[in-house]
Design a protein around this nucleic acid. Structure first.
Length: 147
DNA sequence: ATTCTTACA
DNA sequence: TGTAAGTA
């Protein structure tokens, strides 16, 4: 069997304050407050207006994407608009991987990602192999691969 | 130490 | 956007 890491892909509980998010993304705290004022991003609800802002992982991704697009030449409004569509793709990809990833299995010294059953009948398993920065796949029988 | 708002460059 | 001021 393979060990399932509890929060490998669960970043839902990650929270950061403005200084941390700033260092993580390279976006100044001034910008983060300004972007919030323009409703491009948002911090978790604050009971007290003078209380410190708390950002979640989702916002970290949004800020990272906007920053990347700005560096590529997009102006803030356009970067935000494009980020809105990109984040949907990222969200879908993360949801997919969260469900598809079934741990790692070592075969002949190589680490294979168990990506779940390949067919509806569950007779074959799809394995992903990461080598030299590239991904490749292998389909093997579901039963005779556990020892 | 860090963040907050406001205000001015 | 950066920065300074005066707080919390």
């Amino acid at each position: 069997m393979n060990y399932q890491i509890p929060n490998l892909v669960n970043t839902d509980t990650f929270v950061f304050r403005i200084g941390e998010l700033s260092r993580m993304t390279g976006v100044s705290s001034r910008q983060l407050r300004y972007w919030e004022q323009r409703e491009y991003i948002s911090a978790n609800t604050r009971d007290d207006q003078n209380k410190a802002r708390v950002y979640d992982f989702h916002t970290f991704l949004q800020v990272s994407i906007i920053k990347k697009l700005q560096d590529e030449g997009y102006r803030l409004p356009a970067a935000v608009e494009k980020m809105r569509s990109i984040e949907k793709e990222i969200l879908l990809a993360r949801k997919f991987f969260k469900v598809a990833f079934n741990g790692v299995e070592v075969v002949e010294g190589k680490m294979y990602l168990n990506l779940g059953y390949f067919d509806k009948a569950k007779t074959q398993v799809l394995y992903g192999l990461y080598e030299n920065g590239e991904a490749s796949y292998e389909v093997r029988p579901a039963n005779d691969n556990s020892n």
